[in-house]
Simulated scan of single mutants.
Amino acid sequence: MGLVIIFLLVALLAIFGLVRSIKDKNLLGAFFAFGSLAVFGWFAIMTIIYNGFPVAH
């Protein structure tokens, strides 16, 4: 379940990258940032829904 946390962090960084690339009018960067956000965010959210949030042991 540590992988889900890492993917959530990657999705969070993709949000910052998307905002920055849109602000700089970098369309290719915005495209890849949105793609990363979609893939990593979708995987992390669906894993949390399917398996539940990881608990601390």
Results as ranks from 00 to 15, higher is better:
Phe16Gly: 03
Gly41Val: 10
Ile5Tyr: 06
Leu8Ala: 04
Phe40Asp: 12
Val19Ser: 04
Leu8Gln: 01
Val55Asn: 11
Tyr50His: 14
His57Asp: 05
Arg20Ala: 05
Val55Ala: 15
Leu13Ile: 03
Phe16Arg: 00
Leu3Trp: 09
Pro54Val: 14
Phe7Tyr: 09
Gly17Asn: 07
Ala56His: 12
Phe32Thr: 14
Ala11Pro: 09
Phe53Pro: 02
Ser21Ile: 01
Asn26Met: 04
Ile48Leu: 15
Val19Arg: 09
Ala56Phe: 15
Val19Asn: 02
Leu3Ile: 10
His57Leu: 05
Ala14Val: 03
Ala30Phe: 05
Val55Lys: 14
Lys25Glu: 13
Gly52Pro: 11
Leu27Asp: 13
Gly35Arg: 07
Ile45Gln: 04
Gly29Asn: 07
Ile49Gly: 03
Leu12Val: 08
Phe7Pro: 00
Leu18Thr: 01
Leu28Trp: 12
Ile48Pro: 11
Pro54Ala: 11
Asn26Glu: 12
Trp42Lys: 11
Ala14Ile: 04
Phe32Asp: 07
Phe34Val: 06
Phe16Tyr: 01
Ser21Tyr: 00
Ala11Thr: 15
Ser21His: 04
Ala14Trp: 00
Phe40Thr: 12
Leu18Ser: 00
Pro54His: 11
Ile45Met: 11
Lys23Cys: 05
Ile5Arg: 06
Ala14Lys: 06
Ser21Ala: 13
Arg20His: 10
Val39Pro: 07
Leu27Pro: 00
Asn26His: 11
Gly17Glu: 02
Phe53Cys: 04
Trp42Leu: 15
Ala30Glu: 08
Leu37Gln: 07
Tyr50Thr: 15
Lys25Gly: 03
Phe34Gly: 06
Gly2Thr: 10
Asp24Thr: 08
Gly29Arg: 08
Leu8Tyr: 02
Gly29Ala: 08
Pro54Ile: 14
Ile48Gly: 08
Phe31Cys: 09
Val4Pro: 02
Ile45His: 02
Ser21Leu: 02
Gly35Cys: 12
Ala33Phe: 04
Met1Pro: 11
Ser36Glu: 11
Phe7Met: 08
Phe31His: 03
Ile5Thr: 04
Phe7Asp: 05
Gly41Leu: 12
Leu9Gln: 01
Met46Asn: 10
Ile15Leu: 11
Tyr50Pro: 02
Gly52Val: 14
Val10Cys: 07
Phe40Cys: 12
Leu18Arg: 00
Phe16Gln: 02
Gly35Ile: 08
Gly41Met: 10
Phe43Leu: 11
Ala33Leu: 01
Gly35Val: 08
Val39Glu: 06
Ile22Ala: 12
Val19Phe: 06
Ile6Glu: 07
Val19Glu: 03
Ser21Gly: 05
Leu18Ile: 00
Asp24Trp: 01
Ile45Glu: 08
Asn26Ser: 08
His57Gln: 03
Val19Gly: 02
Ala33Gly: 00
Ile49His: 09
Ile45Ala: 14
Pro54Phe: 09
Ile22Leu: 15
Val19Leu: 12
Met46Tyr: 14
Gly17Phe: 01
Leu27Asn: 14
Ala44Thr: 08
Phe31Ile: 11
Ile6Pro: 02
Leu37Arg: 03
Pro54Thr: 12
Ala14Thr: 06
Asn51Cys: 08
Gly17Arg: 01
Phe40His: 14
Gly35Met: 13
Ala11Glu: 07
Val19Lys: 06
Phe40Glu: 08
Val19Pro: 01
